[in-house]
Amino acid sequence: MVSNPRSSVGLITFINDIKKSGLYVLGHVQLGDLDTLPSDPLQCRYDSWLSLVYHLNIKAFVNLTLADSVRHGVQHLLFISGLGGMRPNTLVLGFYDDCTPKDKLTDPALADATIPTQDPEDERPPYHFPALRPSNDGKEGGNGENGKVMGPQEYVAVIADAMKMLKNVALARYFHQFDRASTISSSPGKGALYVDIWPVNLLRPDSSSYIDTCSLFLLQLALRPKHEGRSLRCSEEKLGQLLKELRIKANVYTVPWDQQVALHWQRQGEVGKRSNATRLSEEYLSVVNRLILEQARPPPAVGFLYLPRPPTDTHRYTAYLRQLDLLTKDLGPTLLIHRGTEV
């Protein structure tokens, strides 16, 4: 799902690189009510989207929809998107945070994307996408915060909806920092290019040695590009054998985190509630975040982390998003992955 292509170029091209031959759909929700409009507002937008697909040199379809909320629009696209019997099984969303969006369509590398016009003096912008939301407290419509079209509660609800529909979900953070040019131009002489993979649920310290289907999907997705993987924080022997069976080339590093887990249980207060994963402290999440940062040497091109399910209690959606925010803070380009169906 793409809110505004101006700030999503890095993520759009990255997903195109890892999808292999899969069906790729760029989805966008325009807020509005057709009953109150004189005509369909989406028809005039397709040219810009198709031009974007052409000039980014990606293989993707474009699906636009009009809805009264982003959540309802995403539901609609998940239900109807596809080509014949081919249906997208993975929803990719940008991360909900306060990072200032940057207009990547002004990148000099895309200078050849200017749409030619019959009149040479008519210098139209290459893409007719709206301006990015303001970075401060200004609000330009929408029902979210700081000009966003949705709030944190609705954002987590979109994630929960996709999981109910048995879709895989990926949350992408800091992909405005992703440098595709340097990534694809790396060579053995410049050193190996790594992706870091944490195939366990870091929000459930009691399950640190458990490898589930979500962990396997994370490994499959992370190692589709031709990069060396560094798979961290699992049973080294068990994971090593699994990677061998799956014919996945990766180095396994055991990362001690007894101090971090001990801090979690210490903050629980009640021994009888050790299985309660909703009582994570911000201090625990911060030290786990630092642990990940300390292992990222040299810095990976992309980090892959396990995305747990949102809580069943909708009142805890904001707290869930806060946990993901603290866990991934300053990690660079990062994908949080949850598996909902077979791949």
Score class of each variant (00 low, 15 high):
100 T>Q: 10
10 G>S: 13
2 V>T: 03
323 Q>A: 13
104 K>G: 10
153 Q>M: 08
32 G>I: 00
251 N>T: 12
168 N>W: 07
143 N>H: 05
187 S>V: 11
29 V>E: 00
315 H>W: 04
21 S>I: 05
322 R>D: 09
287 V>Y: 03
186 S>C: 11
27 G>D: 01
226 K>N: 09
15 I>D: 02
242 L>R: 12
17 D>Q: 12
201 N>M: 00
192 A>C: 04
290 R>V: 06
66 L>C: 09
130 P>T: 09
177 Q>C: 08
21 S>V: 06
278 T>V: 11
241 Q>N: 12
13 T>C: 05
217 F>G: 13
314 T>N: 04
278 T>F: 11
19 K>A: 08
59 K>Y: 15
177 Q>V: 00
67 A>E: 01
171 L>H: 02
85 G>E: 14
219 L>N: 05
17 D>G: 03
339 R>Y: 11
131 A>Q: 13
85 G>P: 06
2 V>F: 00
155 Y>F: 13
201 N>H: 00
223 L>Y: 05
173 R>M: 09
206 D>T: 07
318 T>E: 09
52 L>Q: 03
35 D>K: 07
282 E>M: 06
152 P>F: 06
338 H>K: 09
225 P>F: 09
281 S>E: 02
36 T>L: 06
44 C>P: 02
161 D>E: 15
326 L>F: 05
27 G>L: 01
111 A>G: 15
261 V>M: 10
247 R>V: 10
199 P>H: 02
63 N>F: 08
103 D>L: 04
152 P>S: 04
249 K>Q: 14
176 H>L: 03
78 L>M: 15
61 F>R: 12
231 S>M: 15
101 P>T: 08
340 G>K: 02
15 I>K: 03
321 L>E: 02
6 R>T: 02
39 S>F: 15
285 L>C: 05
95 F>A: 14
77 L>A: 06
118 Q>A: 12
97 D>M: 01
158 V>Q: 04
339 R>I: 07
42 L>R: 10
273 K>W: 07
124 R>N: 12
233 R>V: 11
335 L>A: 03
309 R>A: 07
93 L>C: 14
188 P>T: 09
205 P>D: 01
323 Q>P: 00
165 M>D: 13
217 F>H: 15
236 E>W: 08
252 V>P: 00
199 P>D: 06
219 L>A: 07
251 N>V: 14
181 A>R: 14
331 L>C: 00
189 G>N: 07
112 D>L: 13
207 S>G: 07
106 T>C: 06
163 M>N: 05
235 S>T: 11
43 Q>C: 10
96 Y>R: 02
84 G>E: 12
17 D>I: 03
290 R>F: 03
65 T>E: 09
45 R>Y: 05
161 D>Y: 13
85 G>N: 14
341 T>M: 04
126 P>W: 00
132 L>V: 10
241 Q>K: 11
50 L>E: 11
210 Y>V: 14
40 D>Q: 01
134 P>L: 02
147 G>M: 02
191 G>H: 03
260 Q>N: 04
110 L>Y: 15
231 S>K: 03
